[in-house]
Each structure stands twice: as C-alpha cells, then as structure tokens.
Design a binder for these strands. Structure first.
Lengths: 212, 212
DNA sequence: GTCTATAACCTGATAGAC
DNA sequence: GTCTATCAGGTTATAGAC
C-alpha cells in the first residue's frame, strides 16, 4: 500500500567524487527521512486535518513541493508517516501472544502502556488515534494494524466462543484508558501512577479474554 | 444522516399565508435554533476542523454572516452547539447514580449505550468525541461534562479508596468500547448485538467501581 | 435581522526553472 | 533534487447596504 516512491539508490555511482556545479543543500539521502520524521510529529500533535503539507515542509526545512515530490498527496504522506512507525510500535513481541494464557492480560496491558508511556513511542499512537477519529484513511490504518497484528494473534490463543469480540473489548479498555489519560487528560487518571493503573486494568483485560 | 433538523416551526404566525420573497423579520426566533441544530449535525459528522461556518450557514439556509452575528467565532458556535446537547444527552437520570450499589455497573452501562445506540442522541456524542481528540476546547467540554456531571456523582456513591480513579477507568471501558464500535467500526464489535456487549461490559464496570 | 461583498488569509497540488 | 511561482480553490471574519 505504502510503496515508497523510492529514492532507492543506496549506492551512488561516484562515492568519492565531490558534488559538482549545483550547490547541494545537504545529503538528500536523509531528506526523505527528515520529512517523514517531521510529518510524524506534526500529525501526532495536530491530527490529520490540522496538519498542512506546507507546515511539514517548513518544519523540515524544505519546500512543500518537495514533500509532494517524495510522497505524492497529503494522504500518502500521512500513510507513510504513520503506518510504518505505528506498526513498528505495536508489533507485539512474541512474548505477548505467546506464554501462559493466564498471564496474557498483564503482558498485553504492560506492553501497550509501556509504549504509550514513552513520549517517543507515544507520538505515532497519538497521531493515529487523533486522526482515526476524523479520517477514514487513519481509521483504516488503525483497524488494520490493531486488528490483524495484535488482536487476531491474541484471539487465536483464546479457545473460547467470541474470542475476537473478547479481544476487542479488552482492547477497548486499554485504548479507552490511554485516551482518557494521554489525550483527554482526565484527572486523577492522567496523573496516576502507571503501576496502579496496570494493577487495575490487567485483571479486567484478563477477564475479557479468558473468563467463564 | 442524522435525522431531520427539526423544521421547528410548530406555530406559524400566519398558517395560511404563503411564504413570499421578503421574509418578515418576525420569525427569527427559531432561526437561531435552526443554526444550532445544523451546527450540531455538521460538527458531529465532520469534527471541528472539517466543519466550516459557511457549510453550517448553507445547510441552515442562511448566510454565513448571520451565524457570526448570532454566535461570534467558530469556536463559540462549536461550544454553543455541543455543550448544550451533550450535557442534555448525558445528564444522567437519578436512577443511574442512585439505586442499589451492586446494580450501578449495569445501570450506567445501559444508560450510556442506550444513548450511543440511538442515532439521534449519538450525534452530539460523536461531535464531542471526534472533536475532543483534536481540539482543546472540545476536550474541555468533554472533561467538564463527563467528570462533573457523571463520574463525580457516581464516585460519590462509592465508599472506597480511589473512587474517582475507579469511576474513570469504568468510563474508559465504556467510552473505549463506544469508540471502537461506533467510530472505528472494528468488527465483529461494530455489528455485535448490543445486549451481548452490555452483558460483557456491565460486570467489568461494576468491578471497577466496587471490587475488593 | 438578514444578506452582499470583500478583506485577508490558508490550503493542496502542479509546471517548470536551475 | 530542490525550489519558485502560481493555480484554483477553500477558510474565518467583518463592514455595510437594505
């Protein structure tokens, strides 16, 4: 889906030769990455609608036309910026899905809140959550990554009726809590100790997945 | 989609007279209400950023200047449109907060999902949720209404440590589920029978509020 | 009260120069 | 590769006519 327009030339023909005539602004090998990083920040801070291609370009120190040059439309910029890092952030290690079933609730809760509580890894989640609520593209990313990469693998472990529904209600508890804490900033939840929250959430997640 | 904006003129001054070109300045009494109703629909369908004053004006059959005339800035339009109906929609009847404590989980769950499952009453909730995630004004409305009008009254019933935190985690389960079902539309949750969801959620809400 | 007209922006996207 | 210039819209908000 994402398919980079591919600058895709890791091996320059003349590695030693100095750049000729045209004054290079910088190595453009990472210009693309810089745009992508900035885009991720902008989208996570402002959401899809409020983020502008021009704003991304300015923050990355390039022209807006260059953003289009690399990624195409705004929606393609968004998808490129988000889905990679989001998918990376939530690519649950085997440890969550595997392991004893009676500890899956705590493992899952710890894993997700670990990602959320780290400001660096929180950014892509914020971006997707902020945007998924107002933008169908983002909602699709959310569904795809959450559902296929995380929930389905957990549901597969649960040998009970309605395993998928169970996994989704468990996810709803986690995502809802993250939203209240990190986005809406409802007090006292927003300032509460993370361990206290995990202690309350993990059993509920476990209950959703395996009770009865 | 949200159902009719209430043509809203039950008592016409001249029931038989046909409408002519020059509207008599008589009936602006409900022009304001019509704008407000339309604004609520637009905000709930599109969120704050994507909704335009011009769009509201056009849908209400008036000029955009008139919207500003009545309400001021776009943010003031938003606050007027949202906070009334949201507060009305979630003004929990005494029955939720009162009554036996061991039934509060189910009463709260039923009440909130009852509102969410009705397309008419869902609109203001969607508007606030869509907007609260991207807009601080909306987040403030959300905090204020949710926290003071609903959670605090429930927490007051719970005579346990961390009563407020408990109420917020319960709310997180409900709001998270509503978001997954009505906004993200994660399957099978989005198509699941409401009673089945309530049967799974209510005990968890109860657990959050009163367990241990 | 209601609308026309317009000021003063911002937006995504593209063609083409260097 | 990168940027300038520009198109064809869109936006909020206000001044002022009727």
């Amino acid at each position: 889906m994402i398919e980079t327009p591919t600058p895709a030339d890791p091996a320059e023909p003349e590695p030693t030769a100095r750049r000729r005539g045209r004054p290079p602004r910088a190595e453009s090998a990472d210009t693309r990455d810089r745009i992508l990083t900035v885009a991720r920040e902008e989208f996570s801070e402002r959401g899809y609608e409020k983020t502008s291609v021009r704003g991304i370009a300015k923050a990355a120190g390039v022209d807006s036309a260059l953003v289009h040059h690399y990624f195409g439309t705004k929606e393609q910029v968004f998808e490129a910026a988000i889905s990679v890092s989001f998918s990376a952030a939530l690519h649950a290690p085997e440890a969550v899905a595997a392991g004893p079933l009676d500890g899956v609730g705590e493992r899952l809760t710890r894993f997700v809140f670990g990602v959320w509580d780290n400001p660096a890894t929180r950014a892509p989640l914020l971006a997707v959550l902020r945007s998924a609520v107002n933008n169908e593209t983002a909602a699709a990313v959310f569904r795809r990554v959450i559902a296929t990469q995380l929930l389905r693998r957990i549901a597969a472990q649960v040998d009970l009726p309605d395993a998928e529904l169970r996994a989704e209600l468990a996810a709803a508890q986690i995502v809802g809590t993250a939203m209240m804490r990190y986005v809406i900033k409802l007090e006292p939840l927003a300032s509460a100790d993370l361990e206290q929250i995990i202690a309350r959430i993990a059993p509920v997640v476990q209950h959703h997945l395996t009770a009865r």
